[in-house]
């Protein structure tokens, strides 16, 4: 096997060479989403909007949550979660779905996880104005702390990429990874503070949940756009460390399977 460093140098080289293709494919993916109906773009908001309404009704009237602007909190969380779960679910299937481009057009398989992450976070960016518009509507004006998203989103993208890269390659070899990831991401939804602020949980449980990098991402996102404060540096460093660990694992998986991907799909 090629030495790790040499392999990665080549891999990154070939991916960098194709950066424009990745971009073009991501843009095309977004266009597909917003195509087909006049209200195409509107429909992608419908899902988080409806979820937001449901959660707001359920949690404020039944569970009597008394956080001010609960609906804005839920909405911001759902938008971020949609990007994360979208990355996970599409990531597991992305290499298999692009068989033709890999085996016929000779594109390296690793560009597809990058495309998936790029697509979902571009989508997230496109929905941000709606979030800010909505919070203004509810009488909550966005603060300058939202500008932290400028580095938070890239960090979130790198973290998601570090996971999706490995999942996508494994998903090409074991087809049922897709179902596993779907189910897991559904389960994970309840461990992350989307429908509730993490502060309502007991301290111990908070500490355990905060170990999950997905919780960290959601929490940082909430701090930036909802709570309006400086992102907790401890969490930020933890996420960065996780990213490094996962990217190393993913690159090892990629190196192990890289040469056989095209044959198995």
């Amino acid at each position: 096997m090629t030495p790790l460093f040499e392999f990665n140098r080549k891999l990154f080289g070939s991916l960098y060479q194709r950066r424009r293709i990745i971009w073009a494919l991501a843009i095309r993916e977004l266009k597909v989403r917003y195509k087909g109906s006049l209200l195409g773009f509107f429909w992608t908001f419908m899902n988080p909007l409806i979820l937001m309404v449901i959660y707001s009704v359920v949690f404020t009237s039944i569970f009597k949550t008394n956080i001010s602007h609960y609906e804005v909190y839920v909405f911001s969380g759902i938008l971020m979660w949609n990007a994360i779960s979208g990355c996970l679910n599409d990531g597991a299937a992305c290499i298999v779905q692009n068989t033709a481009l890999i085996t016929k057009a000779a594109l390296p398989p690793e560009i597809f996880p990058i495309k998936v992450v790029l697509t979902h976070f571009l989508n997230y960016l496109l929905t941000l104005p709606l979030l800010f518009g909505f919070s203004l509507l509810r009488g909550l004006s966005p603060t300058f702390y939202s500008l932290q998203l400028f580095f938070l989103i890239p960090i979130a993208m790198f973290f998601m990429l570090s996971i999706v890269l490995g999942i996508s390659v494994l998903g090409a070899f074991y087809r049922d990874i897709q179902y596993l990831v779907n189910t897991l991401s559904f389960a994970l939804f309840f461990t992350i503070p989307v429908t509730y602020p993490i502060s309502i949980l007991p301290e111990k449980l908070q500490k355990v949940l905060m170990l999950s990098p997905l919780t960290q991402l959601i929490q940082m996102n909430a701090e930036a756009v909802f709570f309006g404060k400086i992102i907790n540096t401890g969490i930020l460093i933890a996420t960065l460390c996780m990213t490094v660990i996962f990217i190393i694992i993913s690159l090892m998986i990629v190196r192990k399977f890289h040469t056989r991907i095209a044959e198995r799909i």
């Binding site: 095309r28 597909v32 195509k35 087909g36 033709a100 481009l101 016929k104 057009a105 000779a106």
Partner: peptide, 15 residues
């Protein structure tokens, strides 16, 4: 290298 192994492999039917 330019591989022309299958034409239109990157075509998307909806576009």
């Amino acid at each position: 290298i330019s591989p022309l192994i299958e034409l239109g492999a990157g075509f998307h039917p909806e576009f």
